[in-house]
Amino acid sequence: MERSVVFAGFGGQGVLLAGKILARAAMEEGLEVTWLPSYGPEMRGGTANCTVVIADEPIGSPIVDRPDVLLAMNGPSLDRFEPRVAPGGTVIVNRSLIERPLRRTDVKGVYLQANDLARELGEPRAANMVALGAVVRALGVVPLEAVGQAIGEELGAKGRERLVEVNRAALERGHQKSGAPPSPPHFSRPG
């Protein structure tokens, strides 16, 4: 088994952190994992991405030419990475910020209002955890509870219990929403 996911978005949307939490959960499950960030001269508002590979044997290339899952948190990320997704893979589209459907027909689209769902939970910054919930479902190799646990380990300094709690709630919300039967998304722009 080897599964890979690309997390991509604006700098500041928390895609590196979401990938790191997934990587930590995979490690705690006894799996092999690599977390490879884009580490160029990035800044808030620029683009950021990371690749996470999870396997049950030692991992060769941390660079993935055909990711199984793509999380696109914004339009430029979808434009850049959609062509690379493995046929039969899954693309999670952040409907809150992306105004077009998938161009490809050989991958599965999961449309998720990550920012809106996070806002409903009272923590707009947790959109990345909403999206991570959908990634966990699409990947299917790391249990949701392990990822919730990893959120605690990653964010859980003393006095941050509320932060951990709301991020776990966001994770569960995204997981749950991404499992609902897809309603055909309506887009203002064609693909």
């Binding site: 790191k20 490690m27 092999e32 994992v33 690599t34 977390w35 490879l36 960030p37």
Partner: peptide
């Protein structure tokens, strides 16, 4: 190299 320096693994 930069990749090994920046990437995380267990």
């Amino acid at each position: 190299d930069g990749m090994l320096g920046q990437m995380m693994e267990p």
